[in-house]
């Protein structure tokens, strides 16, 4: 039975491999994202289109109608059938995609993933900024804003959210090393996915700790809520608020000085990188550790994972442009 399968996959692979040769020499790249229609992935699509035009390849985005991983499997199956050269994916559920990505690779298609370091069946996974670098970037900004004085608090969306806590770990490590005089007022608070909870917690902390010099918030609503509390108390600028947030939601608070700043990564850049990496793989280029790539800059290669250090700063200058993109 297994032998049958192998033979059949082989035949299918041969058929598929011959298809693009007959069609055209132009590279075809299909990128399957988590869900179509959201500002984040609209920006990614823009990046894909821009880079496709720049490199003269045929690249397009497939955005499923819901975040059900089953729909991503279907989209990838159709891309295999279509005989594209490269499949890019931002997985909803890395495990679910492994078997179908294995089939894609068996058919000779290059596979690139994004935000999925644990995927096995890919050629490369790329991250625009590693967990550690993003944490450190926040730590640095926070240290500059507070001048390493006073005490601080850390918010995360939930104590079990892996990415947010890893960012917080890296940021706190940075502060412990570079600002030995600073103290965390208590354990981290799991409030950063709620504006209200972040605001209330911040009001309480300001009351309880007169030496509070800043809030580090890793969760989409944390900086917003914290900044509102700081603003209500008339402490804008005195209590630093650093963290990642959506530009559209936070731009007013940034302009008013209540949010100090933060870092994210750019979906637009990620879209471009999909196309550029895809074209490189099709041309048969190898990627090596420490290489300087046009979009990613100098990269670190760990296994199949490409780590760039391209955090995108949320500052008074950048928020308006990002908000225009709907981010």
């Amino acid at each position: 039975m297994k032998a049958f399968t192998k033979i059949n996959i082989g035949i299918a692979a041969a058929l598929l491999a011959s298809a693009p040769v007959l069609a055209a020499a132009e590279t075809t790249i299909g990128v399957v994202v988590k869900q179509g229609g959201s500002p984040w992935f609209n920006a990614m699509e823009m990046g894909i289109d821009q880079e496709a035009e720049a490199l003269g390849v045929n690249a397009f985005m497939v955005g499923p109608t819901s975040n059900d991983p089953a729909l991503q499997v279907r989209a990838i199956e159709d891309l295999i059938a279509r005989g594209v050269d490269v499949i890019g994916v931002v997985p909803n559920d890395a495990q679910v995609l492994e078997p179908v990505l294995e089939r894609a690779r068996a058919a000779g298609i290059k596979v690139i993933t994004h935000e999925s370091p644990d995927t096995v069946n890919n050629d490369y996974n790329f991250e625009l900024v590693s967990t550690e670098d993003l944490g450190i970037a926040h730590g640095e900004l926070f240290a500059n804003a507070t001048e390493c004085k006073g005490s601080y608090a850390v918010y995360v969306g939930g104590l079990t959210v892996p990415a947010q806590n890893a960012w917080a770990d890296a940021a706190v490590d940075y502060l412990t090393e570079h600002c030995p005089d600073m103290k965390q007022v208590s354990e981290r608070f799991g409030v950063a996915e709620s504006v209200d909870d972040s605001r209330n917690t911040t009001l309480d902390l300001i009351r309880a700790h007169p030496d509070l010099s800043g809030i580090l918030a890793f969760g989409s609503q944390g900086p917003i809520g914290a900044a509102r509390a700081v603003q209500e108390r008339g402490l804008s600028g005195d209590v630093a608020v650093v963290g990642l947030f959506s530009a559209g939601q936070g731009r007013r608070l940034v302009h008013e000085g209540a949010i100090t700043g933060g870092f994210v990564w750019s979906p637009l850049e990620a879209g471009k990188v999909f196309v550029q990496l895809g074209q490189m793989l099709v041309e048969g280029k190898e990627i090596t550790d420490g290489e300087d790539l046009p979009l990613l800059g100098q990269i670190k290669l760990e296994g199949n994972n490409i780590y760039a250090n391209k955090p995108l700063a949320l500052t008074e200058e950048s928020v308006d442009g990002l908000a225009e993109l709907g981010l």
């Binding site: 089953a70 492994e98 078997p99």
Partner: peptide, 12 residues
């Protein structure tokens, strides 16, 4: 097919 199962697969 998915080599994995989670509540919500196929919800759509």
């Amino acid at each position: 097919r998915f080599n994995s199962v989670r509540v919500g697969h196929g919800e759509s």
